Simulated assay, not measured.
Amino acid sequence: MMLSQKQTERLLAVSRYYYQDNLSQVEIAKKMNLSRPTVAKSLQLARETGIVTVQINDPFTDSARLQQALKDHYHLKDVVVAQQVNHDEAGIRDHLGAVAADYLDTIVTDGLTIGLNWGHTMLAVAQHLHASQAQNVQLVQLKGSLTNSAETNYSAEITQQFNQAFHTQAQLLPLPLVFDDARVKAAALRDPFIHQVIQTGTNADIALFTVGTTRADALLFRSGYLTAPQIQRLQREAAGDILSHYITPTGAIADPELDQRTVALPLDQLGRQKYAVLIAGGEAKLRAIHAALLGGYANVLIVDQAVAKQLLEL
């Protein structure tokens, strides 16, 4: 639309009064001796002709602001918010895996020790690893395995791909994830070789882990280690698990007796690492991520954009 100079000047005046001086349409009408409908039409025409453009600055889409807000909110040393590619759980995991692999490139240096978790999210990380230039990197498993289950935890695939990327051989923890008797577990941990692996994990510079849910299809619930009443109680009282330690919504141990029988880096040791990196996303894991952060078990968070926003609303 072609505007005369007079029309343009009127649109500019109306727009400045409205957007810069915060005058109402009624006040502008009185000031310029116009009708209120004329002022309204002028504001609309100013937008249609490009004299006025509206920009909405949503802080939640600004990754830097969102990351800083999460750092402040949960007292973290670092946060990486992955751009939202979709809301599909498998797609979110894959994207988080790629982002986490890139992040590892920035923090792994010569002589560091990396503690590994297993599961779907860690598999996604392993699949996106790049060949590292760092020398003398050590890898160690942070928890036992599903020795009596038909379910796969991808431990072998994860370990193999990390070994290839970091040109090393991981120290394995050849114990079941859960013992029937805490005394038997305590005896097993006294074995010199097992004790050495546990100590290496405790002293790791980087711990990579995720959180699990208490949904019926959770891997640990399908593993055969837990009874039906135990599962039902955990679904009532726990927000999820970290390294197979079930935690309450506030981050406390949900089942101390079960925890005494679980072979994994103790939660009171997690978070002391230079980089305790929690990699998790998807709305199903929101409660578990929040609980893990409240418990202080992570100092680095890698999360998708949608969950990052929801965390700040909790």
Rank of each mutant, 00 (worst) to 15 (best):
4 S>P: 08
4 S>L: 03
5 Q>L: 00
7 Q>P: 03
12 L>Y: 15
15 S>C: 06
18 Y>L: 04
20 Q>Y: 11
24 S>I: 10
26 V>A: 13
30 K>I: 10
37 P>G: 07
38 T>W: 08
40 A>M: 13
43 L>Q: 07
48 E>S: 08
49 T>C: 10
53 T>G: 15
65 R>M: 14
66 L>I: 04
66 L>D: 04
73 H>D: 10
78 D>V: 02
79 V>A: 03
79 V>R: 07
81 V>T: 02
85 V>G: 15
88 D>Y: 14
92 I>C: 09
95 H>N: 14
101 A>G: 00
102 D>I: 01
105 D>H: 09
106 T>D: 15
110 D>A: 09
111 G>P: 01
112 L>I: 08
113 T>H: 11
114 I>Y: 05
114 I>W: 08
116 L>E: 03
116 L>F: 01
116 L>G: 01
116 L>R: 02
117 N>Y: 12
121 T>W: 12
122 M>W: 11
122 M>D: 11
123 L>I: 02
125 V>A: 03
127 Q>T: 09
130 H>F: 01
131 A>C: 10
135 Q>P: 03
136 N>H: 08
144 G>C: 00
147 T>H: 13
149 S>F: 03
152 T>E: 13
153 N>Y: 12
157 E>K: 07
158 I>T: 06
158 I>A: 00
159 T>N: 13
159 T>L: 13
165 A>H: 00
168 T>H: 02
171 Q>H: 14
173 L>A: 12
176 P>F: 07
176 P>E: 09
181 D>T: 02
182 A>Q: 10
187 A>E: 14
190 R>Q: 15
191 D>F: 09
195 H>A: 15
200 T>L: 13
200 T>W: 06
203 N>I: 02
203 N>C: 08
205 D>A: 03
206 I>N: 06
207 A>S: 13
209 F>Q: 12
216 A>Q: 14
219 L>V: 05
221 F>K: 04
226 L>V: 02
234 L>G: 01
235 Q>K: 09
235 Q>T: 07
242 I>C: 10
245 H>F: 09
245 H>R: 12
246 Y>S: 01
255 D>M: 10
257 E>T: 11
265 L>V: 04
272 R>P: 03
275 Y>A: 13
276 A>C: 04
279 I>P: 04
280 A>F: 04
282 G>F: 08
282 G>C: 01
284 A>G: 02
288 A>I: 07
289 I>W: 07
291 A>E: 08
294 L>P: 05
294 L>R: 15
295 G>A: 06
296 G>W: 11
297 Y>A: 09
299 N>D: 09
302 I>D: 00
303 V>C: 13
307 V>Y: 07
312 L>H: 04
314 L>Q: 15
